[in-house]
Design a binder for these strands. Structure first.
Lengths: 206, 206
DNA sequence: GTCTATAATTAGATAGAC
DNA sequence: GTCTATCTAATTATAGAC
């Protein structure tokens, strides 16, 4: 019984922690760091404010854990894709990576929202994000893709941010898109249409 | 003397109002609606919180005035360009409009920041933005551009958000871009490079 | 582990002096 | 017009009951 109870308690702990974390991801990316309150996050998670301190120490630490979770989702998605691309043609390979990044942005618009929120102001949260999560991925992926695209090195930042914006914005502002155009970008057909559109934009098939 | 004093007072009033408004634009677009405090805005404007109520009634009304100011800037910029495009070739005309939109995004990254901030959540501020400022511009400009691009009508929303994201993101997250790539996107050479890059992306010259 | 109560700070809105 | 003082409500962090 001791083992059984111990496991159940551990599972309960992790479940609560996970609920708080997902609520934090939604709240921080909807309203920004300052706009999201720990009370709202606790209520969203179906618990109370005291538990946030217990599991995450502080609002700042909770925000970092939320960012970690989003980048872990991206890492998982891209790793799986990189291991299972069906083609060996470099250009079609790169096009498929771009499509998969678009699909990820549709499934997890929160990451782009967070990056725009935090990229605007040079502060400690931005430094932490760039140094811990972004720089290594940029240095690893961007040069390879720009080589496939036949891109001048000077243009790398321009291509990187053009791709990120073109791929993710429509999903990040899905409520606006719905009201403005009538299109729900989260629908599967719209996601695929956007994936093809962006892949053709950045790397037209020849 | 009466006339003189009256004019000075009126000028002082407008100057104070303008300082508060510009401070509000910066604060709201840096930290979001909830993250920006009226006290911070007053301090940024070099005045006090009471004057915000006097000139703008409420935080909500100040936010709407800030949004109005940003869209007025966009309107002015595009109107001037539309009246002075040097070519009559439709495709080159559209490319020049795109370039000018990129230049505007560099000069006023605040508009894109506001749109991403508010486009994420379906609330009254988003409805107000779409209905008052976005829908008429989208309906007027997008079909014409998509016709020039030879775009299927179904793809219009995809092209619209791809263009907006590709054109504006790099300037909206300029601090991130500087730390990540070393490039300052606000420099004139970088602005022109991005304008050309995005124009070539959306409408390759043939 | 979970939750309630509360302390210290800060928020937007308001009243009133000058 | 401008500014200070203050009200009510909300914020994060903390202490402690169970």
């Amino acid at each position: 019984m001791g083992e059984q109870a111990k496991t159940t308690r551990q599972q309960q702990r992790e479940a609560t922690r996970a609920r708080i974390l997902e609520a934090a991801v939604r709240a921080f990316t909807d309203k920004g760091f300052h706009g999201a309150s720990t009370r709202d996050i606790a209520r969203l998670a179906g618990t109370n404010q005291g538990l946030i301190t217990y599991h995450f120490s502080s609002k700042e630490a909770l925000w970092r854990a939320a960012a970690d979770a989003l980048f872990a989702d991206l890492e998982l998605r891209l790793r799986e894709k990189l291991e299972n691309v069906s083609t060996r043609d470099p250009r079609e390979y790169a096009r498929e990576i771009i499509r998969e990044y678009v699909r990820f942005s549709a499934a997890r618009p929160e990451l782009f929202r967070l990056m725009v929120d935090e990229g605007k102001v040079a502060d400690e949260r931005l430094n932490w994000l760039v140094d811990k999560h972004i720089k290594s991925r940029f240095d690893a992926l961007a040069p390879e893709l720009s080589k496939i695209a036949g891109l001048d090195g000077e243009l790398l930042p321009h291509a990187f941010y053009a791709l990120a914006g073109a791929a993710s914005l429509i999903f990040a502002v899905a409520p606006e898109c719905r009201r403005l155009t009538g299109l729900d970008p989260a629908r599967a057909a719209a996601v695929e249409a956007h994936a093809d559109f962006v892949a053709n934009l950045m790397l037209p098939s020849r």
